[in-house]
Design a protein around this nucleic acid. Sequence first.
DNA 1: TAGATTGTTAATCGATTAACAATC
DNA 2: TAGATTGTTAATCGATTAACAATC
Lengths: 212, 212
Amino acid sequence: MSKGIISKSVIRRLPRYYRFLGELEEGGYVRISSRELAEKMGLTASQIRQDFNCFGEFGQQGYGYNVRELRSQIGNILGLEKKNPMVLIGAGNLGRAIAAHINFADRGFELVGIFDVNEEIIGKNVGNITVQSIDEIDKFCTENKPAAAILCIPKNSAEKVSDKLISCGVRAFWNFTHYDIRFSHPDVIVENVHLGDSLTILSYCLNSVCEK
Amino acid sequence: MSKGIISKSVIRRLPRYYRFLGELEEGGYVRISSRELAEKMGLTASQIRQDFNCFGEFGQQGYGYNVRELRSQIGNILGLEKKNPMVLIGAGNLGRAIAAHINFADRGFELVGIFDVNEEIIGKNVGNITVQSIDEIDKFCTENKPAAAILCIPKNSAEKVSDKLISCGVRAFWNFTHYDIRFSHPDVIVENVHLGDSLTILSYCLNSVCEK
DNA sequence: TAGATTGTTAATCGATTAACAATC
DNA sequence: TAGATTGTTAATCGATTAACAATC
């Protein structure tokens, strides 16, 4: 699919390309040039062409890119035709909101199980999934082989839980805790979401002069 | 406070420094060298010294940095002693989870109002704040002068709502929608949280060979 | 004083932008 | 064919790392 290993900077732009192309497609666009797309997205045409050329030659000289075709290619690159089974650990406020709010199917995943330690939550439904005790995780993983896990748990339990999940074969984490999974598991795939840090950055920008 | 304008790359590392130094302080550390901190955080000592020197000379040759002092300095840089009034727009799953989950006071903010359009939610309490109708936002802003807003609303209402808030004096947004506020308001401060994009990146990494 | 470690300058690396030949 | 726009190479820019003199 791709020409060698792709830099994080490029990968982080792919979901946004995918979204924009979806909107263009809905808006009836059939073709678009890198120049026009750059204008709409606030990037340079050069960067767009460089980015796409990491993965192949999706355009045509003198014409530009076919919107539907390009979007579909990027979707494939992102692995969105897959439905990787995923578990949610922690069904507190944040975990339940994630479960309800995120369209997993459109992002290459399927949410197949939810786990918690809190007896008051266990047995209740979140969406159409019944929250199970974390003690069931071993058995569940053996049967369902989840590839990925969402961590919406307190920091102090994150080490134990992630160790356990990795030993059960989970290879990727969407990590909402401040625990650094990669420190003891350098080969695991981790996408961190540090909401607190994000708000802290907003505080900085509100109180100081910021670039861009 | 700082020596000129600081690059986004540096700013994005500040909250993590602040967190680590907090943990060190709790763990009884009095001093730490850039080398030791680098080891713990998975950075280079050089980068740490460069980062800190954007803001001043916080260390002492031959000694290193005083943990408590350094943390306090970074806290000030981040503006965490302030309590900027902030409103939440959208009290659905995600909005309510954010309101409950985030420690605003530790991040330089105070949540002072919550707004929604849904009649079934208006009048209910989220934490100790009563959800108001979005129609009240004008009056509320005049009285309370919120500096920042959290957008947890559908994309198609984001343009109207952000225009309105900006006209009411809101200068900064913690934006959970995929609407690009800066496109029509280039001078506004925006910190985007694109949860869907983040999960999509995890899909890519799970299905392809990734760096780091 | 000697050892340690900073603050800062210089070198390197990687990412973005510009330029242009290839080609539809 | 002429015009447009890509794919790709070269130039620039910015961020990270290395080196070292200053100094506690």
